[in-house]
């Protein structure tokens, strides 16, 4: 079967890129780079599949392998550590040689099976995809290969169940949830609610300035412990404290009964005084 020009061009663009990606997977120092190369190869491979009119295979490969399986890998990589790089230390003795041996064995097995397989006469893509590609694939899978499919499915379910059973631990101590933690904190005499946030609103709204309590004194605990230990905490500026002090003084001396009226009156007095002074 002849390939069209578009197909040939796409292949010669994708194939070298895929080879580079595959080499990156093998030689990348950081685990995340290896995963990225793998994803790249998978997406390019999906494009090649779609180009060859195997749309279902191509798209499902991205959905299942790139979208779910590789995502799980990346998840584990992130849990292991950001800068985790592959170490060349053998944890099991002779691990490398066993690995190489088994790899070669699998390779020979696959090559011989593929070489000796007697393939039926090809019918052509138009015939195979006559009922749309997924429908044709479904017909083959659910009629000719239904037993193989069921065996693989049973194997996978067994493996999943085994993973669940093997990692299952019985709960030996009562579960400690949010209410239990809160009660324990209360009994231990901790602060009952969140610690106050640092910063003085509209004046020093910064992480390193302590908040003020109702009396105007700084609350040390409002600044992050890390900053305090590093000695990066800022003491309150003098103008803030004096401001608070003067306000307190005014409140103490001022008439509490008619606050607003007194304020307004005082302001009027002030302006009156200013104008009289100006006139004078």
């Amino acid at each position: 079967m002849m390939t069209s020009t578009g197909e040939a061009v796409l292949f010669w663009v994708l194939a070298p890129a895929m080879v580079l990606g595959a080499l990156g997977l093998v030689f990348a120092r950081k685990a995340v780079y290896a995963a990225l190369s793998m994803i790249f190869v998978m997406v390019c491979l999906a494009m090649v599949y779609v180009m060859q009119q195997a749309e279902f295979l191509g798209i499902v490969q991205v959905v299942v392998y790139t979208g779910a399986v590789m995502m799980l890998f990346v998840f584990v990589l992130m849990l292991v550590g950001v800068d985790a790089s592959t170490s060349a230390v053998e944890t099991i003795k002779g691990q490398r040689w066993i690995g190489i041996l088994m790899g070669v064995g699998l390779g020979t097995l696959l090559v011989t099976v593929t070489a000796r397989a007697a393939l039926p006469e090809t019918v052509g893509l138009d015939e195979a995809n006559s009922e749309t590609n997924p429908a044709g694939l479904a017909r083959v899978l659910m009629s000719d290969f239904v037993l193989d499919l069921e065996i693989v499915a049973t194997l996978l379910v067994t493996a999943a169940l085994a993973a669940l059973v093997l990692t299952h631990r019985r709960r030996l101590t009562p579960k400690i949830g949010q209410p239990e933690r809160a009660a324990a904190r209360m009994l231990a005499g901790d602060h009952p609610v969140n610690l106050p946030a640092p910063g003085v609103y509209a004046r020093h709204n910064a992480m390193d300035v302590p908040a003020l309590d109702p009396e105007g004194n700084p609350i040390e605990a409002s600044v992050s412990r890390v900053l305090r230990i590093r000695g990066q905490e800022h003491s309150l500026d003098t103008d803030v404290t004096t401001l608070v002090a003067t306000r307190d003084a005014a409140e103490l001396t001022g008439d509490h009964g008619t606050d607003t009226a007194a304020e307004r009156g005082g302001q009027n007095d002030d302006t009156d005084a200013a104008t009289t002074e100006g006139e004078a």
Binding site: I39, V43, I59, V62, V63, T66, G67, A68, M71
Partner: peptide, 8 residues
């Protein structure tokens, strides 16, 4: 598939 790639 595109949505899954976007999450990367």
């Amino acid at each position: 598939a595109c949505a899954a790639l976007g999450v990367y």
